[in-house]
């Protein structure tokens, strides 16, 4: 706006500088603390200029937590959740938007309602399901008498087991089972003009061909947006990975590894003091990948975030 408001402009800058300080100073402190030695860090006031021990601290944090395999697990989990979400939700939205069949709306609402209850609220029973993912099916078979039939025919009791604890599948699947992406894709498919649909049909393309060769390329922006958000969401998970992995050495994630560097504060321990420089170095390792993703794909990230949250 063309107007002269020097005092207000100064105030604006002051406010924005405060904001940016609030946002970035904690991250900067993490970085600085990761470059100091333990004695340096424990003598306040803390310096604002980085020290010279970054590499040593990073190495130490890496070794103490076995970060290599944890980063790999986090990467597998984040990419698989993001990819799974894209695949499942695009297929589902395609079925809902481009087909007519009885029960379609009911199923849409059944999927949509999952937006309402995040994983954290139903954590205890979801854990029980993860210890045997086939238990719902087993229960249904038991009640309907299929188990009994099986026992008569095969002579053995029907006992289906699929333990997801301490597996990558267990880390991934429950995080995919929500409606976030489905809704995003549904919104997008609704904007596809009928003419395009008709034209493809006239040219002899079947449903699957239309889906793969026309809809998928058209939805590329959506896809990247959804990917960034889900990558972040999965990488930053904490409670679920803690529960589902007891074999932390092989299946722990990077964010969980922070726990190894910071002694738990419980009422019993009374709060032991961590090696702050090492903890901060670990913290730095953990936050870098999502920050890189956001910095690189910021445009898509923002678009996706705003479109996907209902």
């Amino acid at each position: 706006m063309i107007e002269r408001t020097p005092i207000l402009n100064a105030a604006t800058h002051a406010i924005l500088i405060c904001g940016i300080l609030v946002a970035l100073v904690p991250m900067w402190l993490v970085f600085v603390a990761a470059t100091l030695t333990l004695p340096e860090i424990n003598t306040p006031p803390i310096s604002i200029i980085p020290g010279t021990h970054l590499i040593e601290n990073l190495t130490e944090a890496w070794v103490r937590t076995g970060m290599g395999s944890k980063l790999l697990n986090s990467l597998i989990m984040a990419v698989a959740v993001a990819a799974g979400k894209i695949i499942f939700s695009s297929i589902t939205a395609f079925g809902i938007v481009f087909f007519r069949f009885p029960g379609r709306m009911l199923m849409f609402w059944m999927i949509f309602i999952t937006l309402m209850l995040p994983l954290e609220v139903r954590i205890v029973p979801t854990y029980a399901v993860a210890s045997n993912a086939l238990s719902p099916l087993q229960a249904i078979f038991d009640v309907t008498g299929i188990s009994w039939l099986y026992q008569q025919v095969a002579g053995a009791e029907l006992d289906m087991q699929w333990n997801l604890l301490n597996t990558h599948t267990g880390l991934i699947l429950p995080l995919v089972a929500t409606a976030t992406g489905t809704f995003l894709y549904r919104q997008f498919f609704m904007t596809i003009p009928d003419e395009l649909f008709e034209a493809s049909r006239m040219d002899g393309a079947g449903p699957m061909r239309f889906f793969v060769q026309i809809l998928m390329p058209l939805s590329r922006t959506n896809m990247i947006a959804l990917f960034t958000i889900m990558f972040l969401y999965a990488w930053n998970q904490y409670l679920w990975p803690i529960l589902v992995t007891t074999d932390r050495e092989h299946f722990g994630t990077a964010v969980m590894a922070l726990r190894l560097l910071i002694p738990a504060v419980g009422d019993s321990t009374g709060g032991a003091v961590p090696d702050w420089n090492i903890a901060m170095a670990g913290c730095l390792i953990v936050i870098t990948p999502p920050l890189v993703v956001v910095a690189a794909l910021q445009r898509f990230f923002i678009r996706g975030l705003i479109a996907s949250d209902k």
Partner: peptide, 14 residues
């Protein structure tokens, strides 16, 4: 925008 990319436990450590 960046703080949003930081995992809650990592922010907690900081």
């Amino acid at each position: 925008i960046w703080p949003y990319a930081v995992a809650a436990p990592a922010a907690a450590v900081a």
